[in-house]
Computed example of a mutant assay.
Amino acid sequence: MRMKLAATAAMALAAMPLSASADGEVNIYSYRQAYLLEPLLNAFTEETGIETNVVFAKQGLAERLEREGRNSPADVVMTVDISRINELVERDLVAGVESDTLSHNIPENLRHPEGKWYALTTRGRLIFASKDRVKEGEITTYEELADKKWEDRICTRSGKHPYNIALISSMIAHHGEAETEKWLKGVKNNLARKPQGGDRDQIKAIAEGECDISIGNSYYYGNMLKDENQRPIAEQVNLVFPNAEDRGTHVNISGISLTKSAPNKDNAIKLMEFLSSPEAQRIYAEANTEYPANPEVEPTGIVAEWGDINPDDLSLQEIAENRNAAVKLVDRVDYDS
């Protein structure tokens, strides 16, 4: 395996430093788990001869980059959502990349206007609905989650989780803060239980009859279907692509940024360009049942079986800029209490 894993937990970060500049290498800080990156990075090495070194952490990479400053060995950071990647931008830890290849492969709304981040995959923030207790077509939009008909029937994870913050941010972009606050209060009033767990746990709660609908990322459902132990649970819900008939379904991203300190800048940009290519897009999207960010690449496998997604074409940068307002709304309505 050509991909070298430097650490597997946030606590191990300081103990296992990467070397900085080295011929034919690129150093990656990643919020994405190593097993998802391995086939992708091995393909990159096969094509270019450039070795990859990876530090994986669930949290704390922005703080580590700040501590390391100009001496950081990291060339790129790979993230799992727009909130984490925008944190790097706000802390002035990443640099803009001008690349005809990246601009051609990644749509404008899925990249930073100054090239400070590029999406690599996308996933829909969907509604999961009980096959037994919710009729098909009974709910079709995010706005309907606040309808009183769903009182005591909705489960979600914490409102402050980055995936929900991104959705709330998109609602602010479409409706403004005042209307979004009313909507969020309505959703809270419809909760069947205190927000808890992850997206998979919400599907499990539907299967157990604790609630009838939930919100979750499409890839969690897809990965449950691929797990023989979890497939019977996932099969008890229908997928709803909210707002598919109007503005489109909210999507989040996994992405990549070039660090300001990158000691192997040329190799890093080669990696970024490779990851946007059709070959890499197929590998990456298939690894986690996601959608390719490159519109020239069709989804495959389980994702293809779901049919075309009509994604909201709202700029992810605009969503990122609404993050602080979204967090304040979650506090104001006391969503997690």
Results as ranks from 00 to 15, higher is better:
D266P: 00
A15L: 12
G24M: 00
E46Y: 02
K149E: 08
L316H: 11
N109F: 08
R32A: 03
R123A: 11
E181G: 12
V76P: 12
A119K: 02
K135V: 13
I256D: 06
Q196C: 06
Q230Y: 13
S169T: 11
M11E: 10
E138N: 04
G159D: 06
A119N: 06
L329G: 09
F56E: 02
G24C: 10
A280K: 00
P195A: 05
D201N: 14
I256F: 09
R247A: 00
A95H: 12
V240H: 13
N243D: 15
L239Y: 04
V97R: 12
P73V: 08
F128V: 01
S19I: 15
T156K: 07
R323E: 14
E63F: 02
G49E: 07
I50Y: 00
E38P: 03
E210G: 07
L275W: 00
L191G: 13
D308I: 06
I256Y: 02
E273Q: 02
K135H: 04
K328H: 06
E179D: 15
P311E: 13
Y219L: 11
V187L: 15
S158G: 08
I253Q: 12
E66Y: 10
N243Y: 04
D227G: 05
I154C: 00
S158Y: 05
I283A: 04
W183R: 15
L167P: 02
R231Y: 01
D92C: 08
D336G: 12
R111E: 05
R332I: 07
Y31N: 09
D152V: 07
G301W: 03
D92P: 03
G197Y: 08
R247H: 13
K149L: 02
M224Q: 13
T249P: 01
L88P: 14
